[in-house]
Structure formats: structure tokens, C-alpha cells
């Protein structure tokens, strides 16, 4: 069985600054894959490469066996058209640090938007499904609220429901709890834990070491655009081998 995500020597530069300097890793189906590392180490950039919000400069990135953003013919690479990239992104859900809900739509409309607009699902069917998803994240009673009327934790749970509405095979989380007050973090992590139990493949950039230890199946520590250490989360977090990992963990734990 192919891996859900396979990165082969992924490089990414912004102008002259090289942010990713050759990332090799594999995310297996159904696993919760945690990415940790100091600020500026390139975690978000790597995550955004997975759904082609950023273009990879060198190396290859595959999702479900399919090359992301390009088509290979012989030894030539062709850039995909916008519509083809959009098609690839349908199956990859993403949750952002700052939620990025659509402020002019109610929670329910936020969740319905993509199924109706992208998949062409009927409105009533989409509405029913959206209600189910909101219920799943514990927000059935907030369906008609606008994002500005919701707390950060509630907004983030709506954002998760919105991503799930496209029935993705892979979910990307970029520090989903970093912008939240401490007492709201738990609700969001609970939803993510349920999702992990349901068998969703998840790549999670996080500073929540407790979550990584408890729910994570693999963990990667990144620093300076390279993978420094990887393995079982409990192993790496309690017994880091590399000096830089030790230094980082001693600061955050």
C-alpha cells in the first residue's frame, strides 16, 4: 500500500532564503503524524507544500501516490493548471492557526460552501450534512452564528467541520490551538482526538506535546529546514537522541 504522503528531498526557497533544505518523510495511511520544531524551522511551509499552497522548488512530493502540483511525462515536469490543482486539493483538508473562517457567512454556510460550490452537491443535502458535522464538533446550536459571534475555540471547530465537509482523505493542521486561550484548547484537541480514532490520516504541526505523545503515531522534529529526528512520539519526546531536539524539548516541556 502506498504511503498517504511521501516527500523526497523537498526543497523550498523564498527568494534567496532556503527554507526547506531537503525533507524526506513518509506519512502512512490512518496515522497521526506530528511535526514539531522551533519557530521558523519551516513546519508551516512544508505543510503548505503538501496542498500546493506553496510551490516546491526541488524534490518530489506525493499525496496518495499522485505527484502534487505537477505532471511527469518522461523526464519532463509540467505544471498543472489551476483547475487541476484545485481538483487535487479537494481531497486534502486544511485547518489554519488563525481559523480563516469566511466572516460573511454563518457557521452552517461556511461548512456548506465547498460541497455546494466545488462538488455541486444539492443545497438541502449539503445543509443536512453540515448540521451533522457541526453536531460532531459539538456546535449544533451555533449553526446560525457568524464567526465574529463565536469564541476562538468554537471558530476552530467550525473550521474543522468545514474541512471535513469535503470528505478529505488527508487532514493538515497548522498549529490549530496556538491562537486559543488555554481553557479552549481542550475542546479542539478532543475533536481532533475523535477524528484520529475514526481513522483519518492527519499531519499535525503542534506545540501540544501532550497531544503528540497521546494521540500521535509518528513524530518528526524539524530545525533549520531539515528533519533532525523522527520516530515514535513517546520515544522521541522522553528520550531524544539529538542535541538540538534535547535543547528544544527542554525549552517547551
Amino acid at each position: 500500500m502506498t504511503a498517504m504522503v511521501r516527500a523526497e528531498s523537498v526543497h523550498k526557497s523564498f527568494g534567496l532564503v532556503e527554507v526547506l533544505k531537503g525533507i524526506d518523510l513518509e506519512v502512512k495511511r490512518g496515522e497521526v503524524f506530528c511535526l514539531i520544531g522551533p519557530s521558523g524551522s519551516g513546519k508551516s511551509t512544508f505543510l503548505r507544500c503538501i496542498n500546493h499552497l506553496e510551490k516546491v522548488n526541488a524534490g518530489r512530493l506525493y499525496v496518495d501516490g499522485e505527484l502534487v502540483g505537477y505532471r511527469q511525462k518522461g523526464d519532463k515536469l509540467y505544471e498543472l493548471k489551476d483547475s487541476e490543482v484545485a481538483l487535487q486539493r479537494r481531497d486534502i483538508g486544511m485547518v489554519f492557526q488563525r481559523f480563516n473562517l469566511f466572516p460573511h457567512m454563518t457557521a452552517l454556510d461556511n461548512v456548506m460552501e465547498a460541497p455546494v460550490q466545488v462538488k455541486g452537491m444539492g443545497r438541502s443535502q449539503a445543509r443536512e450534512r453540515a448540521r451533522e458535522l457541526l453536531e460532531k464538533v459539538g456546535l449544533a446550536d451555533k449553526a446560525d452564528s457568524y464567526p465574529a459571534q463565536l469564541s476562538g475555540g468554537q471558530q476552530q471547530r467550525v473550521a474543522i467541520a468545514r474541512a471535513l465537509a469535503m470528505d478529505p482523505k488527508l487532514m493538515l493542521f497548522d498549529e490549530p490551538t496556538s491562537a486559543l486561550d488555554p481553557e479552549l484548547v481542550g475542546d479542539v484537541l478532543d475533536v481532533m482526538r475523535d477524528l484520529a480514532e475514526s481513522g483519518m490520516t492527519m499531519v499535525v504541526v503542534t506545540h501540544e506535546m501532550g497531544f503528540a505523545r497521546e494521540v500521535g503515531d509518528s513524530l518528526v522534529f524539524m530545525d533549520g529546514g531539515v528533519v533532525v529526528e523522527s520516530g515514535d512520539p513517546r520515544e522521541v519526546l522522553t528520550n531524544p537522541q539529538h542535541e538540538r531536539t534535547q535543547a528544544f524539548l527542554s525549552k517547551v516541556l
Partner: peptide
């Protein structure tokens, strides 16, 4: 972030512009 969220959901450029 609004454009990114829409793109991440698989919306095309035109639709993102019109709807979001």
C-alpha cells in the same frame, strides 16, 4: 488567509473571487 482557505477547499480562482 481567506483566499488560502478557499483554495485549500478546492475552490478555483474565479469562484474564490466571486464567493469569498
Amino acid at each position: 488567509g481567506q483566499t488560502e482557505a478557499a483554495h485549500a477547499l478546492g475552490m478555483s480562482h474565479g469562484r474564490t473571487l466571486r464567493r469569498i
